[in-house]
Nucleic acid binder design. Structure first.
Length: 793
DNA sequence: ATGCGGAGCTTTTTT
DNA sequence: AGCTCCGCAT
C-alpha cells in the first residue's frame, strides 16, 4: 500500500462532512474496478442488489465496498455488519479487508457467518430468551439423540418415525422461521399421526432445560429477540449503519427475516449473489429471496456484474448456453475479453472405471509436463463417485486430496474427546456426560444411566451431579458404583487442575487417565492409528486458543479446520463443495441421466429440481479457467449393481460450436454427431459380449480382492506425550458440594416409613441432606437417595 | 454388558 | 456393495 493510501488515515469519524464530499477522484482502491464493479462499491446508501455472475469479482466488490465505507468515514469497522454462510468465506473476507484497510479491520467484530453473529447476539441477550449466556450449541448428532429421547418419551414407534426424520422436519420449520406455535397444523400433523407439533415443542423444552440451542435456534431465537424486544433491535439499528450479505441466493427464510429486521432501520443493505448459483434449495435456501429483492426493498438499485475474469471464451459460452435454459432466473449474460481458448471436451467412456482411467491418464500427462496439480480438480455429483476415482489415482500414483468428506470435528474420536473436555468445563453438560460415561467401556450401561436420569429428573440435578450423589449411596451395584466413583473423582480432579494447566496438557492428561487413548491403542482396526493421530492433532490445535471455553465455542460453530498447504495435488470434491473455487483444469465425470441430473432431485422437486441441477452443472462448468473436460459412462455400478446409462440431457444442451467430442482411446465405436449426437452409444448398450464389458468384469474381479494402498503405515503414535501406559492414580480428592444442599432437607424424617423400588419397605434411620440411611425390612441398612424412595403408605 | 449378525438405507452440506 | 443401527443372544 502506498503512502497515499486512504486507509492508512486515522480512524475516520462517522458522519463527518468531509466524508460525504463524494467521490474523491478515483481513490486508489477504485482504480482497478470496471464500471459496474465501481458502481457496486460506490452505491453505498439504500438497498442494493449486486447480481454477480461466476468469476465476475464478487468478493473483490464486497471487500472493496467495506474498505470504501471505512475510508470515506461512512462507518467505523464496528458499525458494519457483514454476513457470510461459511467460516471459510468469513475468514477470507476478513483477510482481504485487512489487506485493504490494514489493522483497522481487526475492529470488524460483526463480520461472520449468520450463525456466529447470531450466537454472539444471543450470548449478550440470553436472559431475555430464557437461556444462560453460557448455553451450549448442539451439533447434528446431539440433536438427533435428543429427538430420539423426545420420541421415546411420547411412546412413539421409533422405527416408523426415526429421530433423524423428526430432525429434518424441525430443521425445515426452523429454516422457515417457524417456532412450534407457528407451524401450520396441517404440517405439524404429518409426523407421527399428528404428534409432530407436540414433539417440536417438547424438543424445544428439552433444549431449554439443557441450556442448549441447535443451529436453527441461533437464527430463530434472534428473530424472537428482535420481535419481542424492539428496544434491543433498535440498538442494532443504531449500530449497524451498513449491512452486507454474501451469497444472498443461499439465504433461507429465517435468514431473510433476520436480515429484513436488521435492515429495517437504515435500509443500507447490500446483497451480493447469483441466482444461477443457487444450489442449496434442498436445505431450505429460497432462490425467491433474490428474485424478490426489488419487491421487498422498493427503490433498490440492481447492479449486474457480467464481465467474467476467470474463464476462456469456449468455457464461458458453454456455461452461458446451458444456464440460459433455466426459466426462473433474473438473467445475466456473462462475457469475457479473454481468448476463446480450448474447446470444452466431452468424452464417452464404456464404464466408470474407464472414465476414471481417462481422467488419471490426462492428469498424469499434465504432471509429466510439469503442470501444477494444485490447479486441477475433479468435481463429482455425489460422493459415491469419488471412490473409483480415488482408487484409480492411487493405482496410477496421482497425488490427490479429497475435499469435504467427514469433517475433523465430526469424527467420533474428536467428539468423544470434546465431550470429556466439555464435562471438565461444565458439570451440567448432560449430553457430553452421556456420550462418554461408558466410553471407554467401564461397565456403566443403560441401567446406570437410566438411574442417573431418574435422579436427575427428580432433583433437577445434572447427570454429573446425580452421579456424585449416587456413588455416595447404595443405589448401584458395587461394580458400577466403583466405576462411577472413579469417573466422578477423575472429573473432580481434572476440573481442579484445569485452572492451572495449559489446556493442551490438560487434554492429554484427561485422555490418558480416562483410558480413552488406551482404548484406541488396543483397537486392532485399521483406522485406530489415524484416530490417535487425530487426537494428537486436536491437542495441538487446543493450544492455539487462550482457554478451554473459547476453544469449545470455536469448535461448536467453526466446525472447520484450516485446510493447510496448497500442495501440488489434484483435488476431488463434490460440485457443491466446489462453489466459490476455481481451477485451471476441471474434470466433470458422470454426466449421465439419473446421476446428473440426479434422478432423486427430479423425482422430489420436478422442474425446480431440474433447474437446480442445471445450476449445479453451471457451477461446475464455471469453475474452470482454461481447460474443461466432461465425461459420461455408459455403464456404472450403483449400489453394487451395474446399470446402463444415457448421456445427460445437459450434454445435449451445450453449444456444439464450443464443445468437442473426444473418443476414448480405447473406444471401438465410430461415428460422430448424429441427429442425437450420442446415437453411437447405442452400439454399446445392449450387448454384454463387447470387449469393454468383459474387461469391466475382469477389472472388477481383479479389484475386488486386494486391499487398497490407502493407509500409509508407520503413522506412529508413540513418541508424543501421550505415550505410556501406567495411569497414575493420584489421591482421589473430591470437591465440596458433594451433597447438593440446594435441594434442601429431605422430605423424610427419621423414623418415616418409606418404599424403595429395589430394596422394598424400610424405616429411615437418619437423614443427611438428600441422602437417607434406611433400615430396610429385607435388605438391611442401606444409604439411598431420597429421590428414589416414596412414602410408604 | 457386550458382541455379533441381520435389516434397511443410500444426493448434495453448513452451521 | 457397504455402512449404520438395532435386537438378540451370550
Amino acid at each position: 500500500m502506498s503512502e497515499t493510501d486512504p486507509f492508512s488515515a486515522p480512524p475516520p469519524r462517522p458522519g463527518g462532512l468531509a466524508a460525504r464530499a463524494a467521490a474523491q477522484p478515483a481513490a486508489g482502491y477504485l482504480a482497478g474496478l470496471n464500471p459496474e464493479q465501481r458502481q457496486a462499491v460506490e452505491a453505498t446508501d439504500g438497498p442494493v442488489l449486486v447480481l454477480a455472475g461466476a468469476g465476475t469479482g464478487k468478493t473483490r466488490v464486497l471487500t472493496t465496498r467495506i474498505g470504501h465505507l471505512i475510508s470515506t468515514s461512512r462507518a467505523y469497522p464496528s458499525q458494519i455488519l457483514a454476513v457470510t454462510f461459511t467460516n471459510k468465506a468469513a475468514r477470507e473476507m476478513k483477510e482481504r479487508v485487512a489487506h485493504l484497510v490494514g489493522p483497522v479491520a481487526e475492529g470488524m467484530p460483526w463480520l461472520g457467518t449468520f450463525h456466529s453473529i447470531s450466537a454472539k447476539l444471543l450470548r449478550r441477550h440470553a436472559e431475555l430468551l430464557d437461556l444462560r449466556s453460557d448455553f451450549t450449541i448442539l451439533d447434528t448428532d446431539d440433536q438427533i439423540r435428543l429427538m430420539k429421547q423426545v420420541i421415546q418419551a411420547e411412546n412413539i414407534d421409533e422405527k416408523r418415525w426415526p429421530g433423524r426424520m423428526l430432525a429434518g422436519f424441525i430443521d425445515s420449520w426452523k429454516n422457515r422461521g417457524l417456532a412450534p406455535k407457528d407451524v401450520p397444523a396441517g404440517e405439524a400433523a404429518v409426523f407421527a399421526h399428528g404428534k409432530g407439533g407436540k414433539l417440536y415443542a417438547a424438543y424445544q423444552e428439552r433444549l431449554k432445560a439443557l441450556n442448549a440451542v441447535d443451529f436453527g435456534d441461533l437464527l430463530l431465537h434472534c428473530l424472537t429477540l428482535f420481535r419481542d424486544y424492539p428496544d434491543v433491535l433498535q440498538t442494532y439499528h443504531d449500530r449497524f449503519r451498513y449491512i452486507l450479505v454474501d451469497e444472498y441466493q443461499d439465504t433461507n427464510t429465517a435468514q431473510y427475516l433476520w436480515l429484513r429486521l436488521l435492515a429495517q432501520g437504515r435500509r443500507n443493505i447490500c446483497c451480493v449473489g447469483d441466482d444461477d448459483q443457487s444450489i442449496y434449495g434442498w436445505r431450505g435456501a429460497e432462490v425467491d429471496n433474490i428474485l424478490r429483492f426489488e419487491h421487498d426493498f422498493p427503490g433498490a438499485t440492481v447492479i449486474r456484474l457480467e464481465r467474467n475474469y476467470r474463464s476462456t471464451g469456449h468455457i464461458l459460452a458453454t456455461a452461458s448456453k446451458l444456464i440460459a435454459r433455466n426459466e426462473g432466473r433474473l438473467g445475466k449474460t456473462l462475457r469475457t475479453e479473454d481468448a476463446l481458448g480450448e474447446k470444452v471436451t466431452i468424452t464417452g467412456a464404456w464404464d466408470s472405471q474407464e472414465e476414471a482411467r481417462l481422467i488419471s491418464d490426462e492428469i498424469e500427462a499434465m504432471q509429466a509436463k510439469g503442470q501444477d496439480l494444485g490447479q486441477v480438480a475433479v468435481l463429482v455429483r455425489i460422493s459415491a463417485q469419488m471412490r473409483e476415482i480415488e482408487e484409480r489415482f492411487v493405482q496410477a500414483g496421482v497425488p490427490y486430496r479429497v475435499i469435504g468428506g467427514p469433517r475433523f470435528y465430526e469424527r467420533a474420536e474428536i467428539r468423544d474427546a470434546l465431550a470429556y473436555l466439555r464435562c471438565v468445563v461444565s458439570a451440567t453438560d448432560d449430553l457430553a456426560f452421556e456420550r462418554i460415561v461408558n466410553v471407554p467401556k467401564r461397565g456403566l450401561g443403560d441401567a446406570t444411566v437410566q438411574l442417573l436420569h431418574n435422579h436427575a429428573r427428580a432433583t433437577g440435578f445434572s447427570l454429573m451431579q446425580s452421579a456424585r450423589a449416587a456413588v455416595e449411596s447404595d443405589e448401584l451395584k458395587p461394580k458400577a458404583r466403583t466405576a462411577l466413583r472413579e469417573l466422578v473423582d477423575a472429573f473432580g480432579r481434572w476440573s481442579t487442575r484445569a485452572e492451572h494447566m495449559p489446556q493442551g496438557e490438560l487434554a492429554e492428561l484427561v485422555l490418558e487417565e480416562s483410558g480413552y487413548t488406551e482404548m484406541w491403542k488396543k483397537d486392532r482396526s485399521a483406522d485406530a492409528a489415524g484416530r490417535l493421530e487425530n487426537l494428537k492433532e486436536l491437542v495441538r490445535s487446543l493450544d492455539e486458543f487462550p482457554d478451554l471455553p473459547s476453544f469449545l465455542e470455536h469448535v461448536s460453530l467453526v466446525m472447520d479446520v484450516a485446510d493447510g498447504e496448497a500442495e501440488a495435488r489434484a483435488s476431488i470434491m463434490t460440485l457443491h463443495a466446489a462453489k466459490g473455487l476455481e481451477f485451471d483444469t476441471v474434470f466433470l465425470p458422470g454426466w449421465e441421466e439419473g446421476l446428473f441430473p440426479n434422478q432423486r432431485a427430479l423425482d422430489e422437486s420436478g422442474r425446480a429440481g431440474l433447474e437446480e441441477e442445471r445450476r449445479l452443472a453451471h457451477v461446475g462448468l464455471t469453475r474452470a479457467r482454461k481447460k474443461l473436460k466432461l465425461y459420461f459412462a455408459s455403464n456404472r455400478r450403483i449400489h453394487g449393481l451395474w446399470q446402463t446409462s444415457l448421456p445427460s440431457r445437459f450434454i445435449d444442451e451445450l453449444p456444439e460450436e464450443h464443445v468437442e467430442v473426444e473418443q476414448a482411446a480405447s473406444s471401438y465405436s465410430q461415428g460422430g454427431y448424429g441427429a442425437s449426437r450420442f446415437d453411437r452409444m447405442e452400439s454399446f448398450g445392449s450387448s454384454y459380449n463387447t470387449p469393454g464389458w468383459q474387461r469391466a468384469q475382469e477389472n472388477r474381479a481383479k479389484n475386488s480382492g486386494g486391499g487398497s494402498g490407502f493407509s500409509e503405515s508407520g503413522r506412529g503414535f508413540g513418541q508424543g506425550g501421550f505415550g505410556n501406559s501406567s495411569r497414575q492414580r493420584g489421591p482421589l480428592m473430591i470437591e465440596g458440594e458433594l451433597t447438593a444442599k440446594s435441594s434442601g432437607e429431605s422430605a423424610y424424617g427419621t423414623g418415616a416409613r418409606v418404599f424403595h423400588v429395589k430394596f422394598g419397605p424400610g424405616s429411615v434411620a437418619s437423614v443427611d441432606g438428600n441422602k437417607l440411611t434406611v433400615d430396610f425390612d429385607k435388605a438391611g441398612r442401606k444409604m439411598v437417595l431420597d429421590s428414589f424412595v416414596q412414602k410408604a403408605g
